[in-house]
Design a protein around this nucleic acid. Structure first.
Lengths: 210, 210
DNA sequence: TTTTTTTAGTAACATGTGTTACATAAATCC
DNA sequence: GGATTTATGTAACACATGTTACTAAAAAAA
């Protein structure tokens, strides 16, 4: 594990801290679609993402979802941090968007590291900073954009994150994540196809230009 | 200032830290409507809120606004924290909603305090936690609620924060903060009045039940 | 192969929200 | 007081999005 750590977090953490992480952390590989955190659960480990992508989702009272943002290599989940430290239940759901490699760090160490390692404090604050900005982008998107623009951004993100640059989702799945209906998604996708921006197929969508 | 500090932050910080804050911080009183932070500006002080309320706003490309949330007594601005530490421009605007009393702490001290005071770390992490949750509420509101429900929540918050429990805003001002149009607000307010929930007057709104 | 299920396309209509236009009343300015 | 500005009310209409219903093609199951 130490090699994975050095490759992905070596530029962030000093050797001593890397060593500590290596000692207490556990390495984990999860397949696509693996549920890492559920709403209402208590989180006791903090995930450091080595590779792959994780999607963070919010749920409304009717059980309908909304995609908040993606975590990628080098990221951690500030929401988890926040829950860990406050000993509160998770407000979000985390599911692997692709297969992913993670290092799971037990939360007990975090207070200690925050006191002792400047690089750790930097990392934690940077994580919060990034996550707040992701949340702002999400708010911008929902509040200021129309559904066709949101959809286009969504497709761009999905294609970037997927290995082959192709969006492997049904219209129904897209509708769930954007919190709209399947018919609306189909309608707007067809418009985007007519504009030459995408190419529709069963179970996948090719992105031609964004 | 030390008395204000003890009253409002005494339960959070140890005496030594309170003393440090007292030494480097400056006390500030601002009237209602005072712009504390502008979008794109670099923030060099962190505000600790003693009394009053501050509204945090986001702006779109057309210059239209959206109210994100309010800061109240005992809060600080995590967004500011985030900007300070990252040396990045502010992504939000902060304007006093009521007259407010603040202690302004220069950011240079923050790294030092984060290393030395457990209570400070706790405070900073709690601030991030609270702000992330406020952002989630904002997202819930925009993504899952219809405008009439959002309006009702908005009126509730405004009334709670104002001294006399009355919403002192024109329909146009409300429309700006909810990112909709004046006509829509007038229409929905009239509906709420017909339902007996509020009472409309020129320049102010009485809340009867929420 | 035949049947069933999943996915996508589309029409027709309902509803919420945004826009334009105009009227009226209250407040403010000369 | 009379004129002007500001705040609100309301109608009529436009448009984006949500809903229901039905069809057809593709994939999976039998």
């Amino acid at each position: 594990m130490i090699q994975e750590l050095k490759t992905n977090f070596g530029h962030l953490f000093e050797d001593e801290l890397l060593h500590e992480i290596n000692q207490v952390g556990t390495y984990k590989e999860v397949p696509e679609g693996f549920k890492l955190i559920e709403i209402g659960s208590y989180v006791k480990v903090m995930p450091l993402l080595i590779s792959g992508a994780i999607k963070i989702l919010r749920e409304d009272n009717d059980g309908d979802e909304l995609l908040l943002y993606f975590l990628e290599k080098g990221d951690t989940c500030a929401m988890t941090l926040s829950c860990c430290l406050g000993q509160t239940k998770s407000e979000i759901r985390a599911i692997s968007e692709t297969e992913a490699k993670l290092i799971m760090v037990p939360i007990q160490k975090m207070e200690e590291w925050s006191a002792n390692y400047k690089s750790w404090r930097k990392f934690v604050f940077a994580s919060y900073h990034n996550r707040l900005n992701e949340m702002l982008s999400t708010i911008d998107s929902i509040a200021f954009l129309k559904m066709d623009e949101r959809l286009l951004n969504y497709l761009g993100d999905k294609a970037r994150i997927s290995k082959d640059g192709i969006v492997h989702n049904t219209h129904q799945e897209i509708a769930y994540e954007l919190h709209t209906s399947r018919v609306v998604v189909s309608r707007l996708l067809k418009k985007l196809e007519n504009l030459g921006k995408i190419e529709l197929h069963r179970n996948y969508i090719l992105i031609k230009e964004i």
